[in-house]
Design a protein around this nucleic acid. Structure first.
Lengths: 332, 332
DNA sequence: GATATTCTTGCAACCGGTTGCAAAAAGCCT
DNA sequence: AGGCTTTTTGCAACCGGTTGCAAGAATATC
């Protein structure tokens, strides 16, 4: 069926090693035999079998890309950037959807069976134990969008969620809001916890501002909308820092539906800057995560770990910036 | 490093074949040795290497998932469904991002190197030549969301785009719109061509209705918005069938920004029913593609082709349905 | 209990490559 | 031309499994 090394060797009249060597970077072959082999290979349409060579080289160039965020639009951009970034380095993403998985064991087993060179866990909601499970199994691993901690157990790349919370708080302070609140994602998500913490502590220094917080049941439009409806019933704050852009849009929808205006009656600031936050009929003021930088660094880190072995786990955090659009009133 | 067959064999005191057989469905092993092997394997934490076995079995259980639609939110749902569907059958998606690729050769080569068992091309905008290139290279292939034709060269699963165009036309006729138009995606996309054709021919029977059409430069928010802005300047129709939901939302945004109301001044009907079409602040009337069915059938078809060899290319089309929301006026 | 039949098992070859090693070839120098 | 060094080459073993085959063990049959 497929044409193999042996076929090419026979046709070129050389040994199998010679063929192997012409397709191996930096191997010792004379230009004469290389040419002979090339010709034979071209005539037969030969391409080396990456999986077979992985057996002896120990490298598959396969990277497990693990996520459970298949409903947050920002993750489409994330997958786009990851796949391109990996492809650009000659690596292949093996996609693993962990949406309804609570136990990492199955995916660890699966990625081991396929001897991936490394694993990237791309999720802000998976607990750290998932990434750690891969590391435990001896695979180079990076947790992208994961929780930053002083002594991480695995490489983490992402943003400083607490700093983002502070940033949001400052933005609201600057605009002289007097009653503000945090509308978070699920309370169990570490990203939500950190954002809340940053937000609340930054506001502790402002006794004139009244601060509240509550949590939506998920990082989703529906959850944001439902939570905002509750808040509207109970008497809302003047401005909200929403834990995420989709959540913000849900909240926005609830506010508008209640006949209130944004930012006239209620201000909103989100986090992520997903593509549609910039759509003019959404026009969400938000905090931008530098996706490309995060993803680039994640790939760098996993590649480096693959090439040079494990080293002390490292947290690489990237600064965020406020993208001012139309859901917060201007500073006085 | 990793524990291999040999290690387990040694520990269990049996031959390598015995170990291999205990992990092969339907192989001949006595329950006694199976138990011995299981124990040894558990103690050592052994799991068979899928890639090594693929060498002799000729099956990698890897499926190439090829797409270039990384900016259309509906594709996040598509990837979710594909990855889960494949995982449920013990298959692994190897994701290939063809966003800036114009030549299939590179991806063909790459997927051959990884000896994928089959390929799913998931795209409404890639030309048929891509899917055909994979077939040419001898791989089982299915083009999902591809163009339906009477004599397809590869398996195609999707919707009948012309029928959708007719469906949209009927919906507008039923609501007694007198000046309607098609606002398509890029004219080169076959899906757009077919939708336009169905729409226009269905309206040919209605001489009292004035029909127009135009094309946005891409299936994107910005393109839809820009095109609608042009149309508004030139004097818009009463209702538009937009070639796609993102396009619709772009158009919606332009209409609202011009101070006009939807559906009061201008009606819109989209196609796809992406998740956010249902968001209350978008509330788009649209035609739903049965994603889960399409994706399920695509996987079935590629698996069947892998298992039973190629057969005559087949087109499987699924019926769409109108999802009535708030961007078309009610029938009289 | 002897023979025929079916199950298990290990051997050895193979899947498609890579690589250490030693022999052969080529290149360099005097 | 001869001797020495450097390159190039093929052999053979190996990566981690699978599988056809024949021998051995277990079970069935009479």
């Amino acid at each position: 069926m497929a044409v193999t090394l042996k076929d090419v060797a026979a046709r070129a009249g050389v040994s199998r090693s010679a063929v192997s060597r012409t397709f191996t970077e930096g191997a010792s072959v004379s230009s004469k035999t290389r040419a002979k082999v090339q010709r034979a290979a071209d005539e037969l349409g030969y391409h080396p079998n990456a999986l077979a060579s992985s057996l002896t080289t120990g490298r598959t160039k396969l990277i497990g890309l693990v996520s459970n965020n298949f409903h947050n639009p920002v993750f489409l951009e994330v997958f786009d950037l990851f796949t391109r970034g990996l492809q650009d380095r000659g690596l292949r993403p093996l996609l693993v959807n962990l949406s309804d998985e609570t136990d990492p064991a199955a995916s660890v087993r699966m990625l081991r069976q396929y001897s991936v060179d490394g694993v990237i866990v791309a999720s802000s909601t998976l607990p750290p134990s998932f990434a750690e499970a891969f590391k435990q199994a001896g695979m180079p691993v990076v947790h992208s969008f994961g929780r930053h901690s002083r002594a991480p157990h695995v490489h983490v790349v992402g943003i400083d969620n607490a700093a983002c919370g502070r940033m949001a708080a400052e933005e609201l302070i600057r605009r002289d809001y007097r009653r503000v609140a945090f509308l978070g994602g699920p309370e169990s998500a570490t990203s939500t916890q950190d954002r809340a913490r940053g937000f609340l502590t930054a506001l502790q220094t402002q006794p004139q501002i009244q601060v509240g917080f509550s949590y939506a049941s998920a990082y989703s439009f529906e959850a944001g909308r439902a939570e905002m409806q509750n808040l509207l019933r109970a008497g809302p704050a003047e401005a909200y820092f929403c834990g995420d852009d989709v959540l913000s849009v849900g909240a926005l929808s609830a506010v508008q539906e209640a006949g209130l205006s944004v930012p006239g009656d209620i201000g909103l600031i989100g986090l992520n800057d997903m593509e549609m936050a910039g759509w003019q009929n959404i026009d969400l003021t938000t905090i931008r995560q530098p996706l490309a930088a995060i993803i680039g660094a994640s790939i760098d880190l996993v590649v480096d770990t693959v090439d040079h072995g494990a080293r002390a786990p490292e947290a690489r955090l990237f600064p965020c910036e406020v993208v001012e659009r139309g859901t917060l009133r201007p500073p006085a």
